[in-house]
Write a protein that binds this DNA or RNA. Structure first.
Length: 577
DNA sequence: CCCAGCACGC
DNA sequence: GACGTACGTGCTGGGT
């Protein structure tokens, strides 16, 4: 393999959890139709010795590595002391850039692009369930056949996708952002974050007490016991037995709607409603976070290791699963308690850094609206500035209410809201909402023009793009169904904003990771929450880290408005945020 | 096992 | 008259 500049590899393992798995084999291909496999013994020390022969290749900075979902293979090899270096080409991510709304698993790509059906993993290890075997238990020659075929297919997909990326102007985004990010995410996932289980244990007791108390109160109001967590049963209690609203709205399955919005409106009519809202909140905290998080602590590392999915969100954002660390509560005080359980290890501290108003700043930049650009340049509170314009009063005279409405309008604009949507959100009349929107567009005429232009381009090209060329196809933009079309039009407005923000933070993550490696190897980037990054660092070095992070986040893109970054430090996630 | 309803984040 | 703000993940209930 010496002299190679480019090859494809794939690991076979005993488990899909890369942090706690055993390597069974590693296969290679660098020529269509052929490949080879190294079979590894179950004893880890022996496997490591064998793998050492491959180190000069796998760790070679000059040799590009191709694979399907390389983050997994990189993590597995990290567990065997191999640090995969050099450029990467991930066929899953390549296809994600080419067709963000489609699925990207290898079997599908193979049949779709190569017209070839590879051997299915179930043919080796059996169907999912208690009788499923591990790769280790499969005969070596059968594994070889399967593994080599996979690398061959992946190699061929790379040969196909790379020119396609170039043709669609996606190659810079791929080679400059998405591919380098793989290694960054692999390290973040492997590092994980420490959870103070005692915080959650104590909180669980409080929550359970509250839930039991509320259950009794609700049963008393209802006249009998029922399952409060069943929207069907709850709907019957509220709207049949208690008849709180004879014009209650129904879901598409003809059940009574009992979501928060409905309940809020009903809350003055009967004391049961408030109790149900409170019950729902506590139940959510208990089941989704307080009880679930401790079960996801890795017994070996003692930390929580989320998985970032780099190929699911059609706008270019990351998502997080097992657990989802991107939806940890922050808004109300009960929920915020959960954040206290995320802590740095002894002697370290968290640094949190988040982009301030990045999507609205991108709206200012992409639209070129001079009023919005000046509002950002002046450094004043953007929502107050918007309120001052749409309500025609000096900034000093903007009331809390006016600012709140302007803030809702600003968010609505990013999402392509309608007058109807805004009126619902602000609980004001349609006419008033329309006036508000008209006022908004006459204050920021460039924003209106930009929104129209985004829709026009989507119609003309069939897709919209971010600042860095990421595409989102919007075939529904031509639909005769106005609901479907309206959805596509909102996507035409939102996708370039949300997607450019995703591009920018990814650029920042790649550059921060590379600087940390050289300049502050002790500091770790551990979490990403769309516009926010969390770091764990020695207490004494947090100031230096803050400066580095600010510099790289602000410098990730050159906009016609400044990219502001807010930072905080603390001994748990709540304190740092 | 899958879908609906709901709720958490940005 | 109907229409209802983008992107996600996960839990529970309820039907199969």
């Amino acid at each position: 393999m010496s002299g190679l500049s480019d090859f494809c590899f794939d690991t076979e393992t005993n488990s899909l959890d890369p942090l706690n798995t055993q390597l069974v084999s590693i296969a290679f291909s660098w020529e269509k139709g052929s490949g080879t496999m190294l079979w590894l013994p179950p004893e880890k020390d022996r496997a490591i010795k064998l793998l050492a022969h491959l180190r000069p290749v796998l760790e070679n900075e000059k040799i590009r590595k191709t694979g399907q979902n390389l983050k997994f293979d990189i993590q597995v090899l990290a567990g065997y002391g191999i640090s995969v270096r050099g450029p990467l080409f991930d066929t899953m991510l390549a296809h994600y850039l080419l067709e963000p709304d489609m699925r990207h698993n290898m079997d599908l790509l193979s049949s779709q692009y190569l017209g070839y059906e590879p051997v299915h993993i179930e043919e080796l290890i059996g169907e999912r369930g208690p009788r499923q075997k591990t790769m280790r238990e499969v005969e070596k020659e059968r594994v070889r056949e399967y593994a080599v075929e996979d690398t061959d297919v992946t190699w061929q997909l790379m040969k196909l996708f790379e020119p396609m990326l170039i043709k669609h102007d996606l190659h810079t985004l791929a080679a400059g952002i998405e591919m380098p990010l793989i290694r960054v995410l692999a390290a973040m996932e492997r590092d994980g974050v420490l959870l103070d289980e005692s915080v959650l244990k104590k909180y669980a007791v409080t929550l359970r007490e509250g839930i039991i108390r509320l259950e009794q109160e609700i049963y008393t109001f209802a006249g009998h016991e029922f399952n409060i967590s069943s929207p069907k049963q709850l709907g019957d209690i509220l709207f049949v037995r208690l008849r709180l609203d004879d014009n209650a709205r129904l879901t598409k399955t003809k059940q009574y709607r009992t979501d928060e919005e409905v309940l809020q409106r009903l809350s003055g009519r009967h004391p049961i409603v408030e109790k149900v809202l409170e019950y729902r909140g506590l139940k959510k905290l208990l089941s989704t976070y307080v009880e679930a998080l401790p079960q996801l602590v890795n017994p070996v590392t003692g930390r929580i290791h989320t998985t970032y999915n780099q190929a699911v969100a059609s706008t270019g954002r990351l998502s997080s699963t097992n657990p989802n660390l991107q939806n940890i509560p922050v808004r109300d005080s009960e929920g915020r308690e959960i954040r206290k359980a995320f802590i740095p290890e002894q002697g370290k501290i968290f640094l949190s850094a988040d982009y301030s108003q990045i999507e609205l700043r991108l709206m200012a930049h992409l639209s070129g609206d001079s009023a919005m650009i000046s509002d950002f340049l002046s450094g004043q509170d953007i929502h107050a500035a918007t309120a001052s314009k749409i309500f025609g009063v000096p900034v000093a005279d903007v009331t809390r209410e006016m600012r709140a409405r302007a803030k809702t309008a600003n968010f609505g604009i990013i999402y392509g809201i309608s007058a109807f949507g805004l009126s619902e959100r602000l609980t004001i009349g349609r006419k008033e909402a329309k006036e508000l929107i008209d006022g908004y567009f006459s204050s920021y005429p460039g924003v209106k023009a930009y929104m129209d232009e985004s829709i026009r381009r989507a119609r003309e090209l069939g897709y919209v793009t971010t600042m860095f060329g990421r595409r989102r196809y919007l075939p529904d933009i031509h639909s005769r169904n106005q609901v479907v079309r309206g959805n596509a039009e909102r996507n035409a407005i939102n996708a370039p904003l949300q997607g450019s923000a995703a591009d920018i933070i990814k650029i920042a993550m790649v550059s921060i990771a590379s600087r940390l490696e050289r300049e502050m190897p002790g500091a770790k980037m551990i979490l990403q929450v769309h516009d926010e990054l969390i770091f764990e660092v020695d207490e004494g070095r947090v100031k230096k880290l803050e400066a580095l992070v600010r510099e790289e986040m602000k410098g990730a893109a050159e906009l016609s408005v400044p990219l502001e970054v807010d930072t905080g430090t603390g001994y748990n996630w709540l304190e740092a945020h």
